[in-house]
Write a protein that binds this DNA or RNA. Sequence first.
DNA 1: CTGAAAGCGCTAACAT
DNA 2: ATGTTAGCGCTTTCAG
Lengths: 335, 335
Amino acid sequence: MVKRATIGDVAADAGVSTATVSRVLNGGAVTEAAATRVWEAVARLEYTPNALTKGVFAGRSSTIGVVIRDLSSPFYLDLIRGIDEVAAANDSLVMLANTFRRVDREVAQVRTMDEQRVRGVIVTTGEATDGRTRRMAENDTPCVIVARTVPDAPPGMHSISLDNAEAGRLMAVHLAGCGRSSIGVVTSGRRPSQIQRTAGLRLALADMGLPLPKDAVTVAETEEEVSDAVGALLARGRVRGEPLDAIVCTTGRLTVAVHTALTARGIAIPGDIAFMTMDDFPWAGALGITVIAQPSYQMGLRAGELVVDRPSGSVELVFAPALVARTSCGERQKA
Amino acid sequence: MVKRATIGDVAADAGVSTATVSRVLNGGAVTEAAATRVWEAVARLEYTPNALTKGVFAGRSSTIGVVIRDLSSPFYLDLIRGIDEVAAANDSLVMLANTFRRVDREVAQVRTMDEQRVRGVIVTTGEATDGRTRRMAENDTPCVIVARTVPDAPPGMHSISLDNAEAGRLMAVHLAGCGRSSIGVVTSGRRPSQIQRTAGLRLALADMGLPLPKDAVTVAETEEEVSDAVGALLARGRVRGEPLDAIVCTTGRLTVAVHTALTARGIAIPGDIAFMTMDDFPWAGALGITVIAQPSYQMGLRAGELVVDRPSGSVELVFAPALVARTSCGERQKA
DNA sequence: CTGAAAGCGCTAACAT
DNA sequence: ATGTTAGCGCTTTCAG
């Protein structure tokens, strides 16, 4: 094994002090002659500076920590791409951790990021990590909480989220506009974003005189549970003699599962039932699925910027959802 | 801003030396009484150890570096999930960098990983970074090159790839089995994996007496170029009076684009033309698209293990592709 | 412009 | 079992 050259080796090889080497590497006042000799030594010894040591001295590393609940969701992929874009533009790297949707891991991963003295963290975790992130903010480490707002956030702690109630409203209006009146919802549970979307949907529906009874909303945590949830919705419609004419999914994570549950039962979309869901995705166009899109890439960009730019105070960014109408709700096509 | 407590602060608060603190934190011989006082001090001061410093001392950090060419490809997402799984199981983190398909960034990102003194790197980069990774391997940093093999790899430098020729062969056999004989190919260019897949396809086709002329293979680097490539293929068929009855895409990255180009022209799949592509993806089932799947998650797992387990010598892992037959090639359905 | 020396926060001998 | 001491590789005063 070849031992790595240290700054001391370079200094010795170039016949200068380590201070001088550090100066030519980081831009200080040095004579041209010295600089040349140092660069030659760097090349000869294949010197690669140790970023860890720099970090120790600076008190923090230059990498951005990102903690994601579910790497397989397309929303998060685009978010990460946005963050990475900002990181790359700032000679920074992204340190990534997936929590596999487990709270204990969320806490552990955020702590690890803190231990790594990251430049800032961007997390999609729940309230369980708020104690830690608050403290990190106090310790001068910017924190960005994605996908929910944070009450009484201290300076340095920011949030980026979607206007979820508006997302729900958009769904209601679009469905009503497509002539649908008996709507069923598949949602994924306790998270504030999910609840707000359903609430926004219900409210807008009510405004139009369309009720959304409690049992028209079913919860599915996992893809496996989706088929049952859809089945329950369908059965409810049959019993009441008021068959469902639309199904809404409030999370992009379960889109495939809901779509599959529907088509597997031989249900035609939108012939039998209209379908719309959250988050745009590459195949949505090909499949004609109408969605409420989040600007996930933009959100990643802004999250990265909050870490890099360190605005004073606490900033709360709420993004607007956008309807992308296709054909899955029986939209009447333009001439 | 609250200043972070150091190990010295904890030691002072607990009335012991820093060495003792270090021992209770990392497991050494200490009296119960001392340990208790230290843990109390840790809690009181909200001490969070500095992983950077540990890394300096150990000569390397505990994070795994991953350099990806194109974060938007589903193959890489699954690869990352596999790597992250191994990392999480080893108290490690993943440091991620996207290169946006630019060679200069590949080189820069791999260098940055080296500077970070990562535990090991997993890269999907081209030959341009081989100099650096070879040196890293010599410096005792395991390197795993994904998606191509490496000639004369030194110890510590490993490769994980797909049997691309076999992938091409599987495509040829399947298409022939579905009664197709005039095949067009959309490929994405110069990379060895692409070339090998096309070569494997051509060879197997030739064995069955089906030629694959040069102009039946078109290259598209970007999604924008796909439509033209598909158009050229179609036009060629018309001119020769031997219309295409199948189109093959050799990269998962362009699947959506090729599919869209076909359907946008009003071409029925598989009625008019059979279609198959590389890499399975969540919606393939819903769309009935037949694919050659790579075990991407498994590949990520193995890549992570190579970094963590540090086998001596150079290991070269070649994974077998698998045909996932659906309906897009006009497969005759089983009774 | 340059070098000597102190120190960033932590670990690991080496004594005691 | 515990404290003292010497670094890990680098940056940064502070003299010269």
